[in-house]
Design a protein around this nucleic acid. Sequence first.
RNA 1: GCAGGGAUAGCCAAGUUAGGUCAAAGGCGCAGCGUUCAGGGCGCUGUCGUGUAGACGUUCGCAGGUUCGAAUCCUGCUCCCUGCACCA
Length: 881
Amino acid sequence: MSDTEHAYDHTTVERRWQDRWDDEGVYRTPDDAEDPTYVLGMYPYPSGKLHMGHVRNYTITDAYARFRRMCGDDVLHPMGWDAFGLPAENAAKERDTNPHDWTMDCIDTMREQMRSMGFGYDWEREITTCTPDYYRWNQWLFTRFHEEGLVERRDADVNWCSSCETVLADEQVEGDAELCWRCDTPVEQRELDQWFLAITEYADELLDSIDELEGWPDSVRQMQRNWIGRQEGTRLPFEVQDPDGDDHGTVEAFTTRADTAYGATFFALAPGHEITQAVAERDDDVAHFVEEEADPDGEEPNGVATDLTATNPVTGEELPVYVADFVLSDVGTGALMGVPGHDERDHEFASALGLDIRPVVAPDEDEIPDVSESAYTDDGVVVNSGDYSGLDSETAREQITADTAGAETTTQYRLRDWGISRQRYWGTPIPVVHCDDCGPVMVPDEALPVELPEFINTTGNPLDAAEEWKRATCPDCGDEATRETDTMDTFVDSSWYFLRYVSPELSDAPFDRERSNEWLPVDQYVGGDEHAVMHLLYSRFFTKVLADAEGLAHREPFENLLAQGMVQLDGAKMSKSVGNTVSPQRIVEEYGADTARLFIMEAAQPARDFDWSEQGVRSTRAFLDRLHEQVSALTEGSYDGKRGTTAEYVDSEIDAAVAIAADEYDDLRFNVAVREAQNLSRTLAGYVEYVDAPHAETVERGLNAVVSLLAPVAPHLAEELWTTLGHDEFVAEAAWPAGGDAETATARRDLVENTREDVRDIVDVAGIEDPERIDVTVTPDWKYEALGIAIESDAPNVISELMSEPSIREQGDAAASYGQTLQENREALTRPLDPETEYETLRRAAWLIEREFDAAVRVQTADADDAGHAEPGRPAIDITE
RNA sequence: GCAGGGAUAGCCAAGUUAGGUCAAAGGCGCAGCGUUCAGGGCGCUGUCGUGUAGACGUUCGCAGGUUCGAAUCCUGCUCCCUGCACCA
């Protein structure tokens, strides 16, 4: 695309200002800044190229950061790299390089792309998680967690991706088909020694304090609640015996419906339960079922009878024990009491196997439900339950739990401890050595960081192949020992990176405590909602642990969270595999970064999805070109008019735009804020075109405002025009322009717009072909006074109160009639602009009506008796043909 | 199934937290006019119905209710989206 069809060369302009900002350190945040506004976009994984999602994400934070800076705040707006992770290993293998070099190359490329977008970061605070300077603190924090008793090593069934050759967190397994989140390979189960962080210790606080996260979207809060999945219930102990009377011990079963204990007609074990395993060894049917038939994903619940019995601890009844595939090892205790009368799934199972189905809960005492066809699952009144009959479900649960030996109320969570072990190279080495005598031992702080060895290209875990690196001595006994070869989940890195920005160079602690206490929490966090659970939950967890263990004064990391919407193409998510992407680089080359940024921001509110539109981009660019021309026209110096009433109108519109845009920016409604700037530009153009000799100062003030209002979103052109307008400083560092208050501004606009619409209505309805003169008469003072009295008054009838006011009484019939109107609308009265402001507003806006109807417009006060039916907020209009 | 969020004029979408200038912002589409005007772009206007002076009528998923007054509050229903789920 040639630049000749544009009013300015974006490449030159954008480079120029990027260089100047760098030279002057405009976006630096000094360490002594006082409680800066902390604006943060989720740091990217350095895949090599920015995509539109990144552009949108970082344009949002950049615009907000710039706006806050113009409002006079100190701002902290840093950027960094989520630089560990599997793709780097894969890429390194493909390209015959190593993860480190590949990652660093990607970072260089992306940093340059960010620079070309004009994002104003404090690059002095840049962090890169794959550098020892960063990941040593992961190790240090791991040790602190260990000291707090929050690290556990245990044998665990883990999700294993055979393609990635690594363990996956539950959150990284997707869908019913259980596919790896990265490569879509079906996930297998394996048993391995794993390192866990005890996030469940904080489950209650993580759940309860969600309520206070008022700056977060409801959807994210709800997802976290679901994920934690707290459930109150009862643990009941069932004695399990085989036919010979041999005891298999007590099996605990968790239930939320202890009130249905009398309805239990069977007991069921998971195929993976240890008793099941024991029985399978001597019982071929059970073995066959476990091996061949059990299908936890199947629609139908399947099961097989055993020769065991379980004693219902509430009733003493002997229940048959089944092995059933709908019982899951990792839910509850892997065993349950079956109550087919009051649980859908148990009902289905009992029906299939011909087991008893008993109603023990009823809607009310005289109405025993028919449970032969389907379960009655609501709470109600307990029946057929011995001494408990007649109690409501809630009370029965409490009573049964209290009366039953060995029963206790417990809380169960869906949330599991966080397995952080990964059998991969490109991550933080877990700082542990294994000693034959002492077992696993923490690497002491002074020996940190445990640095990664050279990359070895192998199919398994490269750390396992690094023989020399693996050799270590035990910190406790000094004997030979072996290094732990697991690395940490990269979500560990991102769980505290927002703290590192505060003091990125600090060498004796991960973060400066005092400064963090002042600078945190992040005031505005922005990112995609694919991180709604994992990253955001882990970050909250880390913050709470650091508050308890390291004196951090905050228990929540992110005060306000914005989950930005997707940039789509034809209604579909942009995706490399589908091939429907738009390259930010191409857009920047063709139209410039300002155009890309402005288009994205005006297209929709930041939380919404929207469609990319090349035509929208073009018209955005056209707007910037017109603005450039507007400024050039002003500086050519041919505007030599006086400040007439039209200019006064323009002035009030400038105030209005500034005030409204400020409110909208503050609430992150960039699309509305930007529209104010564009409308103001339009108003200025209309003014220049309408009057013979525009008033240069007014136009200048207006263009200054337009440029200021656009500066957060289109910063390069804004700087360029700001200079053209004669300013020496950066617009990035300029103060937000002074304006009026948004409420009055809106009231004035409404008055003008309503009046113009009324004129149109009249002309249209009355069929006036060619209006010659239009008289607009503002309300008489006494009506305004009367309205004020009526609003204040709490008398049942205001008319007498109005008539006690001489200035109103002397209006005679008119006063009585208006008083009547007021009385009828008593409850709905609102205070309008005062008559003087109204008069002034309309006088200034008269040119709009003149222009539209090509008629003389006369705005007058109502001191004459021709006020007609003018009312406050509603001038009388008289049109002469 | 559970939970959360929704349903607004041809389409997209504000407004609902604090009921009253709300026939209801803005955008798109469509139509008319203008721009020394092919088109495009840009600007102005219109876009539920009726109406020869700014009015009236009907409307905010469906059905009721509260209120002087409801897009907004309450109850029930229908449908859509998102998350979770053989979760005991």
